[in-house]
Amino acid sequence: MLELQNVDFAYKNQSPVIHDISLTVGPGEFLAIVGRNGSGKTTLTRLIMSLIKPTKGNILFQGSIIPNCTPAKMARHVGYVFQNPDRQIFHDTVAEEASYGPRQLGYTPEQTATFVNEALAATGLSQLADAYPLSLSKGEKQRLTIASALAMQPKMLILDEPTSGQDARQRDQLLKLLIKLNQQGTTILLVTHDMDLLSACAQRAIVMAKGHKVFDGPVSELFQDTLQLNNWGLIEPAALKISRELAAFGLKQTASINELSHDLVNMLRRNNYA
């Protein structure tokens, strides 16, 4: 679906911030880009959205380079959800806000209404369709930005730090929503620091360090080398730490909190504690 071929990027008169990145994203994948601050994660997604142009290499979407690509043209294929929802919300109702994108892309009013209703239903915002967007909670605003992106019928969704500033309940709702969207066929690319979120939903992880891609593989493989993980500025998910501590009691190591809780309950049952 998306392919980056030996992509380099440098800001004018400055040293490169992205070095020779090649990667392929297949349809229906759920992948996460992780790395410490300044490692090039967001720059990589900005390159994908044509917000900036590569200084070397090519970016292909569905097998072809999009000629004279602009972010507005790319929006037809890829939805981008920014970290700060307040930077894009400006309409008086949730439904109007979500309909801005499809109208910009030239869909008919009927098509727009259908897409908006579907997007609001998918994000659990149908009840708030007439609400004033700025009165929503941070979590609801974030879901509204996702609905706004979904209403443009993208094949792929990029989310930049979607859980920042959200409480545990909002984070959990977002996690369920992303998993549901992915199961419905949307390709998801997540930029995050949240290793628990990564282990709970992503199938594949890409680690960026100083503008280089230093790891690209299944999430389970990422957590095998703790020392390397620390070198990249990442921390283990809480579930992995707990399961490692409890390995002596026969618990298998896992990065998934759901798997850990399931194994713990089984272990307690086996030992007649429950």
Binding site: R46, M49, L51, T70, P71, A72, M74, A75, R76, G79, Y80, F82, N84, D86, R87, Q88, I89, F90, Y100, G101, Q104, L105, S148, A149, M152
Partner: peptide
Amino acid sequence: AIQEAQACRGYSPQGNLIRRFLSYMAIIKP
């Protein structure tokens, strides 16, 4: 930053001066 966020939602000012000004509301309001 707001221009970039709206560009990712299809914002692309086109047409005459009045149309451009009206579409610029997507930047001014936030």
